[in-house]
Measured scan of single mutants.
Amino acid sequence: NCLEGLIFVITGVLESIERDEAKSLIERYGGKVTGNVSKKTNYLVMGRDSGQSKSDKAAALGTKIIDEDGLLNLI
């Protein structure tokens, strides 16, 4: 459970895995996936064609922004 207690938001199109697979992977390792960035969000996983508003909010809140490889490296 290397992601225990961590909260993730996924945005954009992921290249190597589907969004549902990424969500399942995060949950399997103890993390939680939500739909919107908040002060409780630990990581924003940004894929291709992701919206600017979520990354702006993450930056404003100090949320770590990672890509798909960054997510896989956490596991």
Rank of each mutant, 00 (worst) to 15 (best):
N36S: 14
G12M: 04
G12D: 08
V45E: 00
R48F: 02
T63C: 14
A59N: 09
V13S: 14
S50C: 10
N1W: 03
K40S: 12
V45D: 01
V9L: 03
A60C: 11
E68G: 09
I7N: 15
R19H: 11
K39T: 11
G31H: 00
E27K: 09
K57S: 10
R19V: 11
D49Y: 11
K40L: 09
F8P: 03
K57H: 10
V9H: 07
V13C: 11
V13T: 15
C2F: 14
N73F: 04
D20T: 12
T34P: 00
L71R: 01
S16Q: 12
T34F: 07
S53R: 14
F8T: 03
R28W: 05
A59S: 09
V9T: 13
T34N: 14
N73V: 02
R19C: 06
V9P: 02
E15Y: 07
V9R: 04
T11H: 09
I65K: 04
A22F: 05
A58L: 06
S24H: 12
E18W: 00
I26E: 00
S38G: 08
S16D: 07
I65E: 02
K40I: 05
A60T: 09
V13E: 15
N1S: 06
L61Q: 08
D49H: 13
G12K: 03
S53H: 14
N36I: 12
I17H: 11
L3Q: 03
K23W: 03
D56G: 10
S16C: 08
R28C: 05
V9C: 14
K57I: 14
T11Y: 07
V37M: 10
D69N: 13
T41V: 12
G5K: 04
E21N: 08
L25I: 07
I65S: 03
S55K: 15
G51T: 15
L44D: 01
V9I: 01
L44C: 06
I7H: 14
G5Y: 15
S53P: 08
D20L: 08
K64T: 11
L14E: 05
G12F: 00
N36H: 11
S38H: 04
L72D: 04
T63S: 04
S24D: 11
